[in-house]
Simulated scan of single mutants.
Amino acid sequence: MEFTIGGQLEVRMTPADVGKRVSVRRVAEAPSEGARFTDTVGVLTSWDDGVLSVTTKHGRIVRIPESSLVAGKIVPPAPARRRGPAAAFAELSLATARAWQPVESEPLGAWRLRAAGGFTRRANSVLPLGDPGLPLGEALERVKAWYAARDLPAYVQAATGAEGTQEQLCAGLEDHGWRREVSAEVRIAALAPVADLDADVSAVRTARETDAAWLSRYQRFGTPGPHVLEVLGSGPSVWFASVPGEDADGVPAAIGRCVVDGRWAGFMAVEVGPEYRRRGLAKAVMAALARVALDEGASAAWLQVEADNEGARALYDGMGFATHHLYHHFRPA
């Protein structure tokens, strides 16, 4: 990173630049040989009482004392992605929300409080796509009370890493004692190449509704209650896929779910039994669902994968999916 003017390091930003993307160099806290400085790139989310907060695209909040600051400057927004369809954050966020709907929801200003009996964080967290209409501290107290009344932990889902995302909200949540519990990547790709994957789809069965066999492979609950079935069945146009297993118990070798919503096809619940892995079944399920979605007029694909799931991330890399943004679930400490 270049910070020099006439060979001198300079700080070329002020507290008035809060909300902008910055590149900052500071003295390393524990300098090692040849590494006297530490560099951070992200959104400047606050600059108060002699401390800067910079939120990176991965949701990490870095607090930097002014006394350690060596150089800093405003940098242009991240370059447009070269792969996959163009996608605005708001459009994609709404599509992902419609594909995994809660059983109960309530507005708080432009926030949406969502609950589904505790089945997945996505269906039991706040979707904050605007102003809650209250100061942040008051809004969070309302959130905690709403979830407590339902015997559920309070979560807020906030995003980083794309234009129009919520780095300042992430910093505000941390300032109010909320801590990031899990992070996931939202990835996108053109749909046609997914449909054209080199995979044998002859054994993949697709259906409009789930059944007991499909549910027996799904790993996210014990005994499925009505709220589980309601969430799984929600969305504009829902498809389920399965590959029959080899055992008499009827448990599928692999399953998947796809929701078609206009130009978007969202892929979820792609699971392969441990004994069936490395046979290309995940690709086969994805390809079969992509072909159904193409027939319905979709042209773009999205999926969500937890940031620490290295195996799944590598699989989706090979399918052409690129990270659009990240989302993080915050919970009161």
Rank of each mutant, 00 (worst) to 15 (best):
E138V: 06
S93Q: 06
S125Y: 04
A115G: 01
F89N: 08
P85H: 01
P132T: 12
L92E: 09
N124E: 02
A116T: 06
L129W: 14
T120H: 05
W111Q: 05
K144F: 07
Q101C: 10
A149Q: 00
E91H: 13
R142S: 14
R98P: 04
L136P: 01
L129K: 04
E138Y: 00
L134G: 06
S125T: 06
P102T: 10
L134N: 00
A116R: 09
P77F: 07
A148T: 07
G117V: 02
Y147G: 03
A95F: 14
A86Y: 15
S93L: 02
R122N: 12
P79M: 01
P132R: 08
L127F: 15
P77R: 01
A80Y: 00
A145Y: 08
L140V: 10
R114W: 00
A110R: 07
G133K: 01
P132I: 06
E91S: 14
A115Y: 04
G133E: 04
W111F: 11
E138M: 02
A115E: 02
S93R: 03
P107Y: 07
R82L: 15
L140H: 02
L127Q: 01
A99Q: 07
P132Q: 07
G109F: 12
E104A: 13
G130E: 01
A123F: 08
G109D: 01
G117I: 01
R98G: 06
R122Q: 13
G133W: 08
S93F: 02
T96F: 10
R122I: 08
P79D: 07
A139K: 00
A99S: 14
A148S: 10
L140D: 01
R98W: 03
V103I: 12
S93P: 00
L140I: 08
P132F: 14
F89I: 10
V143H: 01
A78P: 12
A116V: 08
L108W: 10
A148I: 04
L136G: 06
A149L: 02
N124I: 03
S125R: 03
P135N: 09
T96V: 13
A97G: 12
G109M: 05
R114M: 01
T120S: 10
A139H: 02
V143I: 08
L108I: 09
L136D: 02
P85K: 11
L113Y: 09
V126Y: 03
G130F: 06
W100R: 04
R142E: 14
L140G: 07
L94Y: 15
A90Y: 12
R121Y: 09
L127T: 01
D131C: 03
A95Y: 13
L129I: 09
A99F: 13
A80E: 09
R82Q: 14
S93V: 03
V103R: 07
Y147T: 00
A110I: 06
A90V: 11
A86K: 15
P128I: 03
E91T: 15
A95V: 11
L129N: 13
A97W: 10
A123R: 04
P135R: 11
P135Q: 09
Y147I: 03
L94N: 15
A99N: 11
P128A: 08
W100H: 07
A145P: 03
L108T: 11
V103W: 10
R142Q: 13
A99C: 11
Y147V: 03
R114N: 04
P132H: 11
R150H: 05
E138I: 00
A123E: 02
A110H: 09
E91W: 15
